[in-house]
Design a protein around this nucleic acid. Sequence first.
DNA 1: GCAAAGTATGACATCGATGTCGGCGGCATC
DNA 2: GATGCCGCCGACATCGATGTCATACTTTGC
Lengths: 346, 346
Amino acid sequence: MSASRSADGVVDGANLRRPTLTQVAAMAGVSLKTASRALNDEPNVAEATGRRVREAADVLGYRLNGIARELRRGATSALVGLISGDLTNPFYSAVASGIERELRQHGLQLVTANNDEDAELERALVDAFLERRVRALLVVPSGVRHEYLAVESNHGVPFVFLDRPPDGPTADAVLIDNIGGARAAGEHLLRGGHRRIALITDLARMAPQRGRHDGFVQAMAAGGNEEWRPYLRTDVHDVRRAEETVRELLALDPAPTALFTTNNRLTTGALRALRGHPGNPALIGFDDFDLADVIGTTVVAHDPVAMGREAARLAYERISGFAGPARTVTIGTTLIPRGSGERPPA
Amino acid sequence: MSASRSADGVVDGANLRRPTLTQVAAMAGVSLKTASRALNDEPNVAEATGRRVREAADVLGYRLNGIARELRRGATSALVGLISGDLTNPFYSAVASGIERELRQHGLQLVTANNDEDAELERALVDAFLERRVRALLVVPSGVRHEYLAVESNHGVPFVFLDRPPDGPTADAVLIDNIGGARAAGEHLLRGGHRRIALITDLARMAPQRGRHDGFVQAMAAGGNEEWRPYLRTDVHDVRRAEETVRELLALDPAPTALFTTNNRLTTGALRALRGHPGNPALIGFDDFDLADVIGTTVVAHDPVAMGREAARLAYERISGFAGPARTVTIGTTLIPRGSGERPPA
DNA sequence: GCAAAGTATGACATCGATGTCGGCGGCATC
DNA sequence: GATGCCGCCGACATCGATGTCATACTTTGC
């Protein structure tokens, strides 16, 4: 990876002042207000006057100042904020994409920020967004508590939580059916004859991880299986650790005959560890991913784009004045068998 | 995928008016200006006065109105716009991530919009962003011409182009070494003994695709190979078409012994077509992707996060007043052999 | 032909912050 | 004890648009 530079042509980066409506009005020989009317297609502007104003605007390269307009119109922007994890994680980018598409239909713009999974930073970002007067704030919370969004201190800016439930019952949320999805995975493996099943989860402080853990445990309990317990590995947070963890698991004697990884990062790590490994245990991953069909990985799939869409919809309804009780939308999951989850125990 | 709703608790969505600085000042018993000074940590505020103001702000839940501040401070926001394709494409989301990280260091926020690969929409988005007074605009252009960003009409708002060069020599750009990368891929296959190599490209109207085409052709010419010509397939734009195209190619007699796909979408399609296919031709894809190591796909890799970072850096320098000639940063490529590109001709 | 209604326009206040400038009291200086 | 400086504070203009209201001039109605 190298970076070189070449130069050609000239860019005028000077901060030329953009022309204001006053200047357009002056050039057209009308008052400020008339110019405003003309450019906003308001009634009561003579045909000829309107043309003169538009010409002047054109010549000057006038562009309305949205900041001034927003101030006058009520000091609230056409922006909706999203605070989430890093966009290189396809889960977050899919969510962002769903949000963006939905917002666009209502003339709203998405502003994104990365919380780096840090509660402190997240809090600062919320403040910054509120100062910028976003119309709504969508948050995939990094961590534990987030009382900071007590409604009373946010003066009516609607919050929507994604993937992790809000602390209190005071905000809308879009959640995944983590328990159901994980239970289905557990049942699927049990049906396949597995007993020694390794459960590998991410940080337990994240609510979705707890849900996936619990769902899996429910399935084991219902199936009367206890042999999974020695193979539980929690708080595995990155791909490399996941790979190592799976390697260690496979080195045990007896080794687990199946793995359940509770998010896409962990699944990636597991796939790396499994590559060329003789044992070839069964594997189910939570979160669908690109090329899972090619690799043949059985997953618990859900629709992150739909999550984003639903969240944006909830937010938009609030923006539009809906004042009812907090709502929770649950996104369902589907187990997609692709081979890896159907391998029999060795 | 199902969505259900449950309700609990109450959200007050009413549009409570946020308190203004004037109200804070009144409560603290000082003038507007003094309150402003206190909250901005300006000098010449008595200790006790400052405390009273901060307390009042706290009690009222005051939050500065960024819109008003920006208007007063110069009618330009702390936003930088990004117009690109859909974020579900990992290339775009990686670029966005790189941009976001870099901007954050300078207190700038990223606003994203999807051009849907439509030039008309793209143009409208540029206008909308300019109205919103973004400090800079980063664009991964959808299509062909984009004279619209003639600098003079943008009054000093810096533009940076990513992945596709600007029309004129008047804007900064961050490009990939498409020609070099594609040539390397071609040479690699030739060295492997391949002659009947299929080149599968996306829409020819996209400059990067033309570069990758040309680089490949250069390699073939240099190697004195002409046998690739019957296997050229261009303007393949989505995964499904790519899959079909590859299937058709493999059904030819004689079939190609190797494939070169010029972006991640096409590579995905090819992998789907190849799954379980007996012939098992060699494959090199342009763009690295998640799990390529697991699948064993040889790729021409580059660093989209670095692209974003560099673009944001160029933009920031302009924002900071740099007024020199237009610059182009080229991101290098690396051929990563992982097996698929090293399979010998059948 | 005259009142009523309607059209085209402009003067001025306003949104919520910051910048400029000037006033007032206290304290050091000579 | 007059002068000057400095710390603290407030009145007012300002950023660039939109909303309100007044006004001059037309048109309509009878």
